[in-house]
């Protein structure tokens, strides 16, 4: 005879870390969140190396020139520009986050009357302005990095 078990046999269905990259058809901010993380982690990694590399300055001119020579190639240069891009994005998105995480620019609660408008949508224009600013900074940086040297 076939029996039906009463114990719960559930299927795990968590998005996990993969859900950071893609979780569904959500708006801009959910994807800015993961970009912010990736940018932040790469900046941190660079920063740790940066401390050790520039630390060579106390060992005299020779040590400095040696270490600067070893990180002076084209690929390092492009890497440095990518880091500039990461910082520009992280900073501009960060300004938006600071202002909203302290609740300064989000306005006041209001009764949910259809069509609803979330606080995030209220500042969407500002979000886009910050992103455009980030792109402008990246472009100015790119101009200096690649056209003036």
């Amino acid at each position: 005879m076939k029996t039906v078990s009463l114990e719960k046999r559930t299927l795990p269905h968590r998005l996990g870390i993969g859900g950071w990259a893609y979780g569904g058809r959500y708006g801009l901010e959910r994807y800015l969140f993961i970009l912010h993380r990736i940018a932040g982690l790469s900046i941190l990694l660079y920063f740790i190396l940066h401390i050790f590399i520039t630390g060579q300055k106390i060992n005299g001119k020779q040590a400095w020139d040696a270490v600067m020579g070893s990180v002076g190639g084209t690929w390092f240069y492009i890497g440095e520009y990518l880091l500039f891009v990461a910082v520009a994005f992280h900073a501009m998105n960060g300004i938006r986050l600071i202002l909203s995480e302290f609740g300064w620019i989000l306005g006041k609660p209001k009764r949910p009357i259809y069509p609803y408008q979330s606080a995030n949508m209220r500042i969407r224009v500002f979000t886009w302005i910050m992103m455009i600013l980030a792109v402008i900074i990246m472009a100015v940086g790119g101009f200096d990095f690649f056209l003036m040297h």
Partner: peptide, 8 residues
């Protein structure tokens, strides 16, 4: 981190 997906 204010990803805002919940409100959406």
């Amino acid at each position: 981190h204010f990803a805002g997906a919940c409100s959406e």
